[in-house]
Amino acid sequence: MAAFLELRNVSKSYGTGDKKVEVLKNINLTIEEGEFIAIVGFTGSGKTTLISLISGLIEPDEGEVLLKGKKITGPGPDRGVVFQNYSLLPWLSVQGNVELAVKQVFPKMSKIDRVNHSRKFIEMVNLTPALQKNPSQLSGGMRQRVSVARALAMDPEILLMDEPLSALDALTRGSLQIEIERIWNESKKTVMLITNDVDEGILLADRVIPLTPGPNATLGEEFKIGFSRPRDKAAINADSNFKKERNAIIKYLDEVGMHRSGSKGEAYALPDLQPIIKVNKLKRINR
Protein backbone atom coordinates (compact mmCIF):
# COMPACT_ATOMS: atom_id res chain seq x y z
CA MET A 1 0.00 0.00 0.00
CA ALA A 2 1.21 3.48 -0.85
CA ALA A 3 1.94 5.88 1.95
CA PHE A 4 -0.84 8.12 3.20
CA LEU A 5 0.96 11.37 2.58
CA GLU A 6 4.11 11.45 0.54
CA LEU A 7 6.48 14.26 -0.40
CA ARG A 8 8.86 13.39 -3.22
CA ASN A 9 11.92 15.56 -3.82
CA VAL A 10 9.98 18.71 -3.08
CA SER A 11 11.83 22.00 -3.56
CA LYS A 12 10.56 25.52 -3.23
CA SER A 13 12.25 28.87 -3.74
CA TYR A 14 11.09 32.45 -3.60
CA GLY A 15 12.25 35.35 -5.77
CA THR A 16 14.17 35.28 -9.00
CA GLY A 17 17.70 36.00 -10.22
CA ASP A 18 20.18 37.17 -7.59
CA LYS A 19 17.46 37.44 -5.00
CA LYS A 20 16.37 33.84 -5.42
CA VAL A 21 16.23 32.08 -2.10
CA GLU A 22 15.95 28.31 -2.04
CA VAL A 23 13.82 27.75 1.01
CA LEU A 24 13.23 24.03 0.83
CA LYS A 25 15.40 21.56 -1.03
CA ASN A 26 14.79 17.85 -1.69
CA ILE A 27 12.21 17.21 0.95
CA ASN A 28 11.29 13.55 1.17
CA LEU A 29 8.72 12.43 3.67
CA THR A 30 6.20 9.66 4.07
CA ILE A 31 3.49 9.62 6.67
CA GLU A 32 1.31 6.60 7.44
CA GLU A 33 -2.36 6.84 8.25
CA GLY A 34 -3.10 7.68 11.88
CA GLU A 35 0.42 8.79 12.62
CA PHE A 36 1.35 11.84 14.63
CA ILE A 37 4.39 13.54 13.10
CA ALA A 38 6.22 16.54 14.50
CA ILE A 39 8.53 18.65 12.36
CA VAL A 40 10.94 20.62 14.53
CA GLY A 41 13.09 23.44 13.28
CA PHE A 42 14.50 26.89 13.85
CA THR A 43 12.42 29.92 13.01
CA GLY A 44 12.89 30.92 9.40
CA SER A 45 13.85 27.43 8.32
CA GLY A 46 10.82 27.10 6.06
CA LYS A 47 8.37 25.31 8.32
CA THR A 48 5.41 27.42 7.24
CA THR A 49 6.41 26.98 3.60
CA LEU A 50 6.30 23.23 4.13
CA ILE A 51 2.78 23.39 5.58
CA SER A 52 1.64 25.70 2.79
CA LEU A 53 2.95 23.22 0.24
CA ILE A 54 1.03 20.34 1.76
CA SER A 55 -2.12 22.41 2.23
CA GLY A 56 -1.82 23.44 -1.42
CA LEU A 57 -1.71 27.20 -0.82
CA ILE A 58 1.56 27.27 -2.77
CA GLU A 59 2.92 24.87 -5.35
CA PRO A 60 6.36 23.24 -5.28
CA ASP A 61 8.93 24.21 -7.91
CA GLU A 62 10.10 20.63 -8.19
CA GLY A 63 8.81 17.31 -6.96
CA GLU A 64 5.29 16.49 -5.89
CA VAL A 65 3.08 16.11 -2.87
CA LEU A 66 0.84 13.06 -2.87
CA LEU A 67 -2.13 12.43 -0.61
CA LYS A 68 -3.31 8.81 -0.80
CA GLY A 69 -1.37 8.48 -4.02
CA LYS A 70 -3.08 11.47 -5.66
CA LYS A 71 -1.16 14.61 -6.51
CA ILE A 72 -2.15 17.75 -4.61
CA THR A 73 -2.92 20.62 -6.96
CA GLY A 74 -4.63 23.14 -4.73
CA PRO A 75 -6.06 23.76 -1.29
CA GLY A 76 -8.96 21.62 -0.21
CA PRO A 77 -10.95 20.67 2.85
CA ASP A 78 -9.43 17.17 2.91
CA ARG A 79 -6.45 18.79 4.64
CA GLY A 80 -7.53 20.73 7.70
CA VAL A 81 -5.13 23.52 8.56
CA VAL A 82 -4.68 25.09 11.98
CA PHE A 83 -2.91 28.36 11.29
CA GLN A 84 -0.30 29.87 13.51
CA ASN A 85 -2.34 33.03 14.08
CA TYR A 86 -5.74 31.30 14.44
CA SER A 87 -7.21 33.01 11.32
CA LEU A 88 -10.73 33.07 12.65
CA LEU A 89 -13.19 35.35 10.91
CA PRO A 90 -13.84 38.07 13.51
CA TRP A 91 -17.36 38.86 12.27
CA LEU A 92 -18.59 35.32 12.94
CA SER A 93 -19.23 33.73 16.32
CA VAL A 94 -17.41 30.59 17.41
CA GLN A 95 -20.25 28.51 16.05
CA GLY A 96 -20.43 30.63 12.90
CA ASN A 97 -16.77 30.04 12.17
CA VAL A 98 -17.09 26.29 12.56
CA GLU A 99 -20.39 26.19 10.66
CA LEU A 100 -18.97 28.04 7.69
CA ALA A 101 -16.45 25.24 7.26
CA VAL A 102 -19.04 22.51 7.84
CA LYS A 103 -21.41 24.04 5.33
CA GLN A 104 -18.69 24.11 2.74
CA VAL A 105 -17.61 20.51 3.22
CA PHE A 106 -21.05 18.99 3.73
CA PRO A 107 -23.32 21.13 1.57
CA LYS A 108 -26.16 18.62 1.69
CA MET A 109 -26.37 18.50 5.47
CA SER A 110 -29.61 19.89 6.94
CA LYS A 111 -29.41 22.95 9.15
CA ILE A 112 -30.04 21.03 12.36
CA ASP A 113 -27.44 18.41 11.50
CA ARG A 114 -24.99 21.12 10.65
CA VAL A 115 -25.49 22.83 13.99
CA ASN A 116 -25.18 19.54 15.85
CA HIS A 117 -22.10 18.54 13.88
CA SER A 118 -20.44 21.90 14.66
CA ARG A 119 -21.40 21.66 18.33
CA LYS A 120 -19.88 18.20 18.59
CA PHE A 121 -16.47 19.52 17.65
CA ILE A 122 -16.81 22.66 19.73
CA GLU A 123 -17.65 20.34 22.62
CA MET A 124 -14.55 18.32 21.81
CA VAL A 125 -12.34 21.35 22.39
CA ASN A 126 -14.34 22.30 25.52
CA LEU A 127 -15.72 25.56 24.20
CA THR A 128 -19.46 24.94 24.46
CA PRO A 129 -19.93 27.84 26.93
CA ALA A 130 -18.45 30.24 24.35
CA LEU A 131 -20.61 29.12 21.41
CA GLN A 132 -22.07 32.50 20.59
CA LYS A 133 -19.04 34.58 21.46
CA ASN A 134 -17.02 36.43 18.86
CA PRO A 135 -13.31 35.65 18.48
CA SER A 136 -12.35 39.07 19.87
CA GLN A 137 -13.96 38.08 23.18
CA LEU A 138 -11.84 34.95 23.49
CA SER A 139 -8.36 34.45 24.85
CA GLY A 140 -5.54 33.27 22.58
CA GLY A 141 -5.81 29.69 23.76
CA MET A 142 -9.56 29.61 23.20
CA ARG A 143 -9.16 31.05 19.72
CA GLN A 144 -6.65 28.38 18.85
CA ARG A 145 -9.03 25.72 20.10
CA VAL A 146 -11.78 27.14 17.86
CA SER A 147 -9.32 26.90 15.00
CA VAL A 148 -8.68 23.24 15.87
CA ALA A 149 -12.43 22.58 16.10
CA ARG A 150 -12.96 24.20 12.71
CA ALA A 151 -10.25 22.06 11.13
CA LEU A 152 -11.59 18.86 12.72
CA ALA A 153 -15.21 19.61 11.82
CA MET A 154 -14.27 19.50 8.15
CA ASP A 155 -13.50 15.81 8.74
CA PRO A 156 -10.16 16.12 6.99
CA GLU A 157 -7.90 13.24 5.97
CA ILE A 158 -5.01 14.91 7.71
CA LEU A 159 -4.69 17.71 10.22
CA LEU A 160 -1.88 20.18 9.53
CA MET A 161 -0.90 22.33 12.49
CA ASP A 162 1.43 25.23 11.86
CA GLU A 163 3.02 26.17 15.18
CA PRO A 164 -0.41 26.19 16.77
CA LEU A 165 0.85 26.88 20.26
CA SER A 166 3.79 29.19 19.68
CA ALA A 167 1.77 32.35 20.31
CA LEU A 168 0.52 31.15 23.68
CA ASP A 169 1.93 31.46 27.15
CA ALA A 170 3.69 28.44 28.67
CA LEU A 171 0.83 27.39 30.96
CA THR A 172 -1.86 27.50 28.27
CA ARG A 173 0.52 25.73 25.93
CA GLY A 174 0.94 22.89 28.40
CA SER A 175 -2.80 22.34 28.83
CA LEU A 176 -3.45 22.58 25.08
CA GLN A 177 -0.73 20.03 24.39
CA ILE A 178 -2.57 17.56 26.55
CA GLU A 179 -5.79 18.44 24.78
CA ILE A 180 -4.27 17.98 21.34
CA GLU A 181 -3.14 14.49 22.26
CA ARG A 182 -6.58 13.66 23.62
CA ILE A 183 -8.28 14.97 20.47
CA TRP A 184 -5.87 13.01 18.31
CA ASN A 185 -6.70 9.89 20.31
CA GLU A 186 -10.43 10.48 19.93
CA SER A 187 -10.51 11.40 16.30
CA LYS A 188 -7.81 9.05 15.03
CA LYS A 189 -6.73 11.54 12.41
CA THR A 190 -3.32 11.72 10.87
CA VAL A 191 -1.63 14.78 12.31
CA MET A 192 1.36 16.76 11.19
CA LEU A 193 2.51 19.23 13.79
CA ILE A 194 5.05 21.91 13.04
CA THR A 195 6.78 23.37 16.04
CA ASN A 196 9.92 25.06 17.27
CA ASP A 197 9.64 23.39 20.65
CA VAL A 198 11.52 20.10 20.81
CA ASP A 199 9.82 19.07 24.08
CA GLU A 200 6.42 19.57 22.49
CA GLY A 201 7.38 17.36 19.59
CA ILE A 202 8.62 14.59 21.85
CA LEU A 203 5.58 14.83 24.10
CA LEU A 204 3.05 14.54 21.29
CA ALA A 205 4.51 12.80 18.27
CA ASP A 206 5.28 9.27 17.16
CA ARG A 207 8.15 10.58 15.10
CA VAL A 208 10.07 13.82 15.42
CA ILE A 209 11.77 14.97 12.26
CA PRO A 210 14.11 17.93 12.43
CA LEU A 211 14.17 20.46 9.60
CA THR A 212 17.66 21.75 8.98
CA PRO A 213 17.98 25.54 8.98
CA GLY A 214 17.24 27.26 5.66
CA PRO A 215 18.06 28.28 3.03
CA ASN A 216 18.09 24.90 1.31
CA ALA A 217 16.36 23.42 4.30
CA THR A 218 15.77 19.71 4.20
CA LEU A 219 14.57 17.06 6.60
CA GLY A 220 17.16 15.47 8.81
CA GLU A 221 17.20 12.01 10.29
CA GLU A 222 14.06 11.12 12.15
CA PHE A 223 13.73 10.28 15.82
CA LYS A 224 11.19 7.67 16.81
CA ILE A 225 9.49 8.40 20.09
CA GLY A 226 8.31 5.28 21.81
CA PHE A 227 6.48 6.46 24.92
CA SER A 228 3.20 4.71 25.55
CA ARG A 229 -0.08 6.54 25.04
CA PRO A 230 -1.82 8.39 26.55
CA ARG A 231 1.24 10.27 27.59
CA ASP A 232 1.68 11.96 30.92
CA LYS A 233 3.77 15.07 30.81
CA ALA A 234 5.12 14.71 34.35
CA ALA A 235 6.01 11.07 33.88
CA ILE A 236 7.73 11.76 30.58
CA ASN A 237 9.67 14.66 32.03
CA ALA A 238 11.08 12.32 34.64
CA ASP A 239 11.85 9.57 32.14
CA SER A 240 15.52 9.21 31.32
CA ASN A 241 14.66 8.28 27.73
CA PHE A 242 13.02 11.67 27.32
CA LYS A 243 16.22 13.46 28.21
CA LYS A 244 18.20 11.23 25.91
CA GLU A 245 15.90 11.84 22.97
CA ARG A 246 15.71 15.51 23.65
CA ASN A 247 19.43 15.97 23.95
CA ALA A 248 19.98 13.96 20.79
CA ILE A 249 17.58 16.13 18.80
CA ILE A 250 18.94 19.38 20.17
CA LYS A 251 22.47 18.24 19.58
CA TYR A 252 21.60 17.32 16.02
CA LEU A 253 19.92 20.70 15.40
CA ASP A 254 22.86 22.52 16.93
CA GLU A 255 25.29 20.63 14.75
CA VAL A 256 23.49 21.38 11.51
CA GLY A 257 23.06 24.97 12.71
CA MET A 258 26.78 25.27 13.45
CA HIS A 259 27.64 23.69 10.16
CA ARG A 260 25.58 26.27 8.36
CA SER A 261 26.98 29.29 10.15
CA GLY A 262 30.50 27.89 9.80
CA SER A 263 30.22 27.40 6.08
CA LYS A 264 28.85 30.86 5.62
CA GLY A 265 31.41 32.74 7.72
CA GLU A 266 34.08 34.65 5.87
CA ALA A 267 37.46 35.64 7.32
CA TYR A 268 38.06 39.35 7.06
CA ALA A 269 41.68 40.36 6.35
CA LEU A 270 42.59 43.07 8.80
CA PRO A 271 44.76 45.92 7.45
CA ASP A 272 48.33 45.96 8.76
CA LEU A 273 48.63 49.49 10.15
CA GLN A 274 50.93 51.21 12.60
CA PRO A 275 50.00 54.33 14.57
CA ILE A 276 51.63 57.48 13.14
CA ILE A 277 51.88 59.31 16.46
CA LYS A 278 55.50 59.90 17.36
CA VAL A 279 56.87 57.74 20.13
CA ASN A 280 57.86 60.58 22.48
CA LYS A 281 54.41 62.07 22.14
CA LEU A 282 52.87 58.76 23.05
CA LYS A 283 55.05 58.62 26.12
CA ARG A 284 53.84 62.04 27.15
CA ILE A 285 50.26 60.94 26.79
CA ASN A 286 50.89 57.84 28.75
CA ARG A 287 52.39 59.87 31.51
Binding site: G74, P75, P77
Partner: peptide, 21 residues
Protein backbone atom coordinates in the same frame (compact mmCIF):
# COMPACT_ATOMS: atom_id res chain seq x y z
CA UNK B 1 -4.26 37.40 3.77
CA UNK B 2 -5.07 35.10 6.70
CA UNK B 3 -8.78 35.37 5.89
CA UNK B 4 -8.06 34.75 2.23
CA UNK B 5 -6.10 31.62 3.20
CA UNK B 6 -9.04 30.40 5.25
CA UNK B 7 -11.29 30.96 2.28
CA UNK B 8 -8.86 29.07 0.03
CA UNK B 9 -8.47 26.13 2.39
CA UNK B 10 -12.26 25.86 2.74
CA UNK B 11 -12.51 26.23 -1.03
CA UNK B 12 -15.33 28.73 -0.71
CA UNK B 13 -17.20 29.49 -3.92
CA UNK B 14 -16.75 32.93 -5.48
CA UNK B 15 -20.13 33.98 -4.15
CA UNK B 16 -19.59 32.96 -0.53
CA UNK B 17 -15.98 34.13 -0.69
CA UNK B 18 -17.25 37.63 -1.45
CA UNK B 19 -20.20 37.66 0.94
CA UNK B 20 -18.77 35.67 3.84
CA UNK B 21 -15.15 36.78 3.83
Amino acid sequence: PDYINVSKVLRLSVFSNIFKV
